[in-house]
Amino acid sequence: MRTLTKMALSAAVLALAGPALADTADRRIALSNNYAGNSWRQAMLQSWETVTGQAVADGVVAEAPAFTTAENQATEQAAQIQNIILEGYDAIVLNAASPTALNGAVKEACDAGIVVVSFDGIVTEPCAYRIAVDFREMGRKQVEYLSGRLPEGGNLLEIRGLAGVFVDDEISAGIHAGVEQFPQFSIVGSVHGDWAQDVAQRAVAGVLPSLPDDIVGVVTQGGDGYGAAQAFAAAGREMPIIVMGNRQDELLWWKEQRDANGYETMSVSIAPGVSTLAFWVAQQVLDGQTVPQDLIVPFLEIQQDGLDAALETTPEGGVANEEYTLDDAKAVIAAAAN
């Protein structure tokens, strides 16, 4: 009797859930990741584990393992993708070591009928889907925010990322476009902070003595705001408006300053959980939905009034994060289709 009830129940559940999920329940999605050596990537992998673990338990997909290469080399990742092809996965979610060097392997995957969704580190191969970050807009936005706070403008210090990396050029181009749009600002100094607090601290400390006393703002790329603040404090300078990059130590410092002297700024970056957005996009493609090849990742912005809430949900020493749902993915797809 009890068994019968159970069977009836599960049949009812299946009937309810069935139509939406049946198409991908036996599909397998693999994450191919090129690097795990910083807190952002660690959070990215954890979000992937959380969301795909739940999706597998719910029967949305059959499995979704993550594979990370040891050396952050395009050749190594190309070999890894070939292995994933041979193992017969239905879709590959890809954070690529290079935008072009993996195109051969990606083409092979497409030819084998595998869906490839690249995100963060995207690939240019036309058959792949791209969930790209609008890095230029991320840079421009910072100057726009500063123009709201400081209508009369002033001198800015720019902290760049790792020299020679595409992301660094893009964000910096956006910042310079912003300065053109708001010509009351001028960039009086530019250093490379390599997206690391300690490197940024050293670079800023070294350049500060040569800069004018009235630096009103610091435009950044993420992971460098706390180090810049430390350098300004050590030099005994007036604290400029430093745009933060969603790291917990940056948010904590911001909160301490706010409580002490009403310091105001903003914080912007990409949530590491964007890997889960890519997962749902891959699931949608496998489900037979029409998905445009090029999608845009939403920014994760923290404003003054959202600071406390953001700090509460950010793990100590980690990055502010957001895990995406199937509905988020549908919204992003719909936005790109229009």
Binding site: G37, N38, S39, Q42, D194, A196, Q197, D198, V199, Q201, Y226, G227, Q230, D249, G317
Partner: peptide, 16 residues
């Protein structure tokens, strides 16, 4: 000392 100085250890702190 680098970790104490810069407010915490990071995975890529030794790189350079």
């Amino acid at each position: 000392w680098l970790a104490c100085f810069s407010g915490g250890a990071a995975l890529n702190m030794g790189a350079e």
